[in-house]
Structure formats: structure tokens, C-alpha cells
Amino acid sequence: MAAILTSLTPSSGPATVFSSVVITGSGFSNVGPLSVRFGTTATTFTIDSDTQITAISPTGTGTVNVTVKVELNGISNSLPYTYV
């Protein structure tokens, strides 16, 4: 089963400065390697629990889709993140 995303906190952030974003959902632990992407850019992250990941937003512009990819289970739904 793919990871499911329910919210991003915050859902927007600075375009030129890295910032922490908490991703809430399910299916984040004990599922093999994960990757977190802001649009097409992979970023660093920490798995806090099965329902929470803390990711570092890369620099960017506009609005991008945030996704979590689980190697064995595919790609999650996406949530929008807006650079301001």
C-alpha cells in the first residue's frame, strides 16, 4: 500500500531558504526505503513515526507537488506546497 499524505505544515515557505515541513499521513515506517520530493527535487527528511515525516523544503518557485515514494509500494498522493 502506498503512503497516504493528509497535510503539510506549513503548506508554504520561503523560495530561497531551506525550511522544515512536517508531512502528516500514514504508511511511513517499516516499508523499505523512502524518498520525499518537492516537485521533481528529492530532499532530506527524517521519519518521525508511521504518521509523520519532517522534511527540509529545497529552494524553489511557484507551487509544487509534495510526494513520498515507497520503493516497494509506489508513490503517494500529492499535496501542494507554495514558495513565497
Rank of each mutant, 00 (worst) to 15 (best):
R37H: 14
D50S: 07
I47W: 04
A3D: 04
T40C: 12
T51F: 07
V31S: 11
V84G: 12
I47R: 03
S12Q: 07
I75K: 12
V17N: 10
A42L: 12
S29K: 06
V64Y: 12
Y81Q: 07
N77T: 02
S7G: 05
G27I: 01
S26Q: 12
G32N: 02
T59L: 10
P10T: 03
S76F: 08
G32W: 04
S12V: 06
V22W: 00
G60F: 10
P14E: 12
T6E: 03
Y81I: 01
L8Y: 02
Y81M: 02
I53N: 06
V17F: 13
V70C: 13
A2P: 15
K69L: 13
T46C: 09
T67V: 14
F18N: 15
L8A: 02
V21K: 00
D48F: 03
S26C: 06
Q52M: 09
G32A: 01
V17R: 13
S11H: 08
A15R: 13
E71I: 15
S29R: 11
G74Y: 10
D50M: 10
F28M: 01
L5C: 04
N65E: 13
N30D: 10
V84F: 13
P80E: 00
G39I: 07
I56F: 09
L8N: 02
S20A: 13
T54P: 09
V68I: 11
V70P: 07
L72S: 14
T61C: 09
T41G: 06
L34V: 01
V36A: 00
V17L: 15
T41Q: 08
Y83K: 10
A55L: 05
P10H: 05
T9M: 03
L8D: 01
T46P: 01
R37W: 11
N77D: 04
S19Q: 11
N65M: 12
T43C: 08
